[in-house]
């Protein structure tokens, strides 16, 4: 909408990071508004294709959030998720996209402040990078 804002898509697992985002809200923590949160049940639901598609559709950044390792509601989902994100990042890096536009964070349900911090940090990094070239190259 407002041109200066970046588009950051976040896939957050229901049990931890999404809950942390809720908590950041109930605690009235303020953070940058560029992020758009999508709920998935587990970080392992995030298909590397989603990440790459987001980038190709013009997202300036993609955040994947899950429970701390060992705390996944489904036991081990986030370990698999980490490999999936690694694949997306590697492909991005090798294919001329910027892998640093993809971020994987483990944020526990009780850590609202950490969520706000990660969002701010990531938004700042993306702002420093500027608009994704995809936007100007025409959506590809």
């Amino acid at each position: 909408m407002s041109g200066k804002r970046k588009k950051i898509v976040a896939f957050l697992c229901n049990w931890c990071t999404y809950t942390a985002a809720d908590l950041a809200g109930t605690s009235r923590l303020k953070y940058e508004p560029d992020i758009r949160i999508l709920r998935v049940m587990c970080s392992s639901r995030v298909d590397p294709v989603f990440i790459l598609k987001a980038l190709m559709d013009g997202a300036d950044g993609v955040l994947v959030g899950g429970c701390e390792l060992g705390d996944c509601h489904y036991q081990r989902g986030n370990y698999y998720a980490r490999r999936k994100v690694a694949v997306a990042k590697k492909i991005a890096a090798d294919m001329g996209l910027d892998p640093e536009r993809i971020r994987l964070s483990w944020i526990s349900a009780s850590d609202g402040p950490r969520f706000a911090e990660v969002v701010n940090e990531f938004t700042r990094e993306i702002e420093e990078k500027g608009d994704t070239p995809v936007k100007h190259e025409a959506y590809v």
Partner: peptide, 26 residues
Amino acid sequence: CIREHDAWVTEDPGEATDKAKELVQG
């Protein structure tokens, strides 16, 4: 979710409104 993820965490009303629109569109 335009309360926890938007109204409560966004400083600027204009930006909060924009964000709400996009979330609704999603």
